[in-house]
Design a protein around this nucleic acid. Sequence first.
DNA 1: GCATGTTGGGATAGCGCTATCATACCGGAT
DNA 2: ATCCGGTATGATAGCGCTATCCCAACATGC
Lengths: 317, 317
Amino acid sequence: MTVSRALRGERRVAAALADKVREVALRLGYVPDPAARALASQKSNQVLVIVPLLSNTLFVDLIEAAHKVLFAAGYHLLIGVSHYSAAEEEQLLRAYLPMRPAGLMLTGYERSAGSAQLLAASGTACVHLMELHPDSAAARLHSVGFSQLDAGAAMTEPLLARGYRRIAFCGAQLDARVMQRLQGYRQALQQAGLADPGLEILSPERSSLALGAQLLDQVLQLGGGVDAVFFCNDDLAQGALLAANRLGLAVPTQIAIAGFNDLPGSAQMVPPLTTIHTPRSAIGAEAATMLLQLLQDQPVAQNRLDLGYHLVRRAST
Amino acid sequence: MTVSRALRGERRVAAALADKVREVALRLGYVPDPAARALASQKSNQVLVIVPLLSNTLFVDLIEAAHKVLFAAGYHLLIGVSHYSAAEEEQLLRAYLPMRPAGLMLTGYERSAGSAQLLAASGTACVHLMELHPDSAAARLHSVGFSQLDAGAAMTEPLLARGYRRIAFCGAQLDARVMQRLQGYRQALQQAGLADPGLEILSPERSSLALGAQLLDQVLQLGGGVDAVFFCNDDLAQGALLAANRLGLAVPTQIAIAGFNDLPGSAQMVPPLTTIHTPRSAIGAEAATMLLQLLQDQPVAQNRLDLGYHLVRRAST
DNA sequence: GCATGTTGGGATAGCGCTATCATACCGGAT
DNA sequence: ATCCGGTATGATAGCGCTATCCCAACATGC
């Protein structure tokens, strides 16, 4: 018992004894068995993270930052990929929750009834990423992110201010966050009296460069003097920029193109892409810190942490 | 004991009884505790995968494919990211090996002495990804991939055949696989009597679009009529293509650009990028299958599985 | 008829930790 | 000298499974 306590730093063990224990453990190469720990204490040192995709830098940034904070605190990440499917997410929860993860990090709030039930039944501490919970008074929920709706407006308004009048919106994937950005775009256009549902092009397909090119094509077929396009994601916008290049369309003079997320390649594009920079690493790190506080029964300063975003003006608009 | 056996399908349990057990387990929502299983059986159902990076589609493809095969067999992935650092890899092994993963999937063969020792001491089944082991007779080692050296030559030779004479090589990261591709490039040039160490530009930095642009700059400063550049990675090549576009350099007429790996964006570039397509998903899936055979003590058909690669000729050369 | 499998089911004893309660010890108040 | 509360250490009993041995029941071959 004393060794167990000394190594975990739990309760008080005389400093001299604790040092000796650690020294001997090191010398013998003794490492506590995580399985036995988990069995005896009824909780593991794993934190389950479920992201929609791994092939988007966005989520990788989140994971890397969270890993750094949690690994330093002795926790390990168990990474699940839901492919934007509530059913797959539920399947992952069903598979991983029995491992009694110490905590959870989930993306957004949209999930199946089964998932919600599993989560409630497990009672595991959970932090939600990317989206803030709409109800700021929901004290039981923890979230770190920014307002996707505001960010959508924050891209649209400057475009309006610059004089663009027929601004199309291209969305793919159509997950909750994309729809919120769309909502922000709509509100901004409405406020300017320029709303037109015909300017919205939505596709349920996975976001990609190739799809960006296709969506630009659709925009061009709209006619009616579309002078700017707000893509819900930099992937799409990059694809559109390349397509414009292929078609000999001048950006931004013939058509302006804007994206969202500020992915690595966006600054390199020709012309460089105007986009909204989102603080993925900070979200991952802060969410991990919040989870750690939850796990250690420390008071959490804010259960709804808004990390904002900012507009990055480049030459594509 | 009978329930345990019925649920695992281990040994023979009367079919009727086994069905009944499963039915009751389902009804009660009973799921065996993985920690208790791990403690009693001295092995977990987790497979540790260590990749250099998550921000490269290459490794994500590997992981997704391996996950699919292993998840279906009841195993879970424990993903570690080494950032191309042998020290970080060792740290990950030190953290994760005590969890007694059922198996391991590692990238390449370069690792620290400490890592090698940990691996040997653990005796865990291990499959190596991407690179084939140079010694095909090393029966104890299991690998799935392709010859990086041959692939390097397979890009260089067609360039020579097309009449390019001053072919530069740009490499970043400089991990083992990049160096093998470089070797293939060298051999091809030597065979053609066109070798020139001055045409090699190597940078230890992380591969990125921005670095690709910088490396292209360096190539242009070489002078001497460089007519083609083989980038060790599509990231770099894409960056170079964009940079050429910015500089008003015509590709491929003024300079031809080739990459490696056939990443998603490469076909979308202007002009589309000539590259080597590598079978990442197949490697992940086959490696997982091989590991599964190892875990179930089934005979493994080949302990060194060559999945090849192929040249994708596009307009950038 | 008996030794010799073979097969399905069960009893027992851990796996290596931690929760919990007990105890020893110490200084200070009575 | 006794009592008492607080603190450091220790004894005990599991956590929920599986490895292993055991046994009953029945089949097989000579």
